[in-house]
Computed example of a mutant assay.
Amino acid sequence: MKHYFKNYFRNFDYGLLFVYILLMLFGLVMIYSASIWVSIVHFEKDPDHYYKRQLLNICMAFCLFLVAVVFPYKRFADKKILGILFAIMIFLEVALILVGNEVNGARSWIDFGVMNFQPSEFAKLFIIIYFSGTFYRKSIHKGSMQLLSFEDVTPPLGIWLFIVLVVGFETDLGALGIIVCIAMSVVIASGVKGKTLQKIFGLLSALGVIGAIGILIFKWDTVFNSSRRGRITSYLDPFSDPLDTGYHVINGYYAIGAGGLEGRGLGQSIQKLGYVPEPQTDFIMAIIAEELGIVGVSIVIFGLGFIVMRGLYVAMKTKDPLARMLAAGISTWIGIQTFINLGGLSGLIPLTGVTLPFISYGGTSILLLSVAMGILINVSTHYKLEKRK
């Protein structure tokens, strides 16, 4: 055991660890700066209210990260582990249906007293682990991933459909898009034959269309409420209604444009003073751009880009199918969520309310992303050990 840990930490992926810690601490500083006005004026709290809460979130998240780093990732193919995760997922989805709270037009939160928990965040990690573990277990019995049949992969797809429908009925469209992309990335990384892959994507497309139709039929008024219609209008032409639907988007542009190369200076943002919504979550990159300029934005983009590219590199190079699927799923999660957040902020896509990984304020997000990072570093370290052998 001593020899194992010596080799493990000798080959540890310290680059990913450094970037993970850097992004969390950078995000913590920016949350403090961005949330002062909101804390005092909107909620009549201390100026460091969000800072203290996020600091506690980070401490808990880092403990979970350490567990994920040393936990043998091969155990994610264990039937008992998968069963426990499945039971937790079902419990959260049922609880959401029965007692979920609506925030910003989406019924996506459960109040556990000590914290508000967002099941869709757990669903992202669950899909990665459950798909990867289940496919890997079946491949062991078959002898190879390429021998998996369409029938072998349909049970996980049924569970995926249930989660998609629940998240869809929450009308959390940003999370829904991420969950769909994660499932697709894990299936592609699994290494199943092309014909099987075509059948899977055909089924996913058919189920997606049926689910979308069902959501539109039963949730039309919620999906296309005034807030969401305003997001579409502001995406198409925010300057057509600058005092209403386009107000926040335009002020986000002002924040980005005002930063320039070096920014106004830390804490000197003007747009966080009530001009942009949720400056500590959805619009935190706009505040970073305004206060720290291109330098601050580059730290975030290059940091997140490094994590995504490193994860995809490991997924392409490792010979272990389970490691490949886990790395591909986690990289896709972080990459797609980053794109949706920054795309909405810059006007490439409509705003969806998705947070920026490791940077935005949020307990559920940082806890589960930290677990995902622990798994990714675990997989990357074992890839290094595999390569040395």
Score class of each variant (00 low, 15 high):
I232L: 15
S240M: 15
I213A: 04
D237K: 11
R324Q: 07
G267H: 15
V297E: 12
L322G: 08
G202W: 02
P242S: 10
I340D: 00
E291Q: 12
L326G: 00
G267T: 10
G259E: 08
I250Y: 12
I288K: 06
S227P: 06
V249G: 01
D221H: 15
I288D: 03
Y247T: 02
L326K: 01
D221N: 08
K317N: 12
Y253A: 07
P238T: 06
P277I: 08
P238C: 09
T281V: 09
L312W: 13
A212Q: 03
G343L: 13
S269M: 14
K272W: 13
D221K: 11
G311M: 01
F218N: 08
I217D: 07
R310D: 13
L243N: 09
M309H: 03
L292D: 01
Y313F: 13
N251E: 09
I301K: 08
F339H: 09
I270R: 12
A286P: 00
I299Y: 02
M309L: 11
V249K: 14
Q280C: 09
I200S: 02
D244Y: 07
I330A: 09
L261D: 07
S227G: 15
Q271D: 04
T245V: 10
G246A: 13
G252D: 08
K319A: 08
I287G: 01
G296T: 06
F218L: 15
M325L: 04
F283T: 01
G343R: 10
M285Y: 09
S298I: 14
G343N: 15
D244L: 05
R229G: 06
V276Q: 00
V308W: 05
A289N: 07
M316T: 14
Q268G: 14
F218D: 11
G303M: 04
G267A: 09
Y253S: 12
I210R: 00
L312R: 05
W220A: 14
G202H: 11
G296Y: 03
I301F: 04
T222W: 07
I284E: 01
V308F: 12
I301V: 09
G257Y: 05
L203G: 08
V295Q: 12
A286M: 05
F201I: 07
L243E: 11
I256T: 01
K272V: 10
I301Q: 05
I250H: 08
S227T: 15
L266K: 05
S269T: 10
E290V: 09
D237E: 11
T245F: 03
Q280K: 15
F218A: 14
L345C: 07
M325E: 03
A327S: 12
V249M: 13
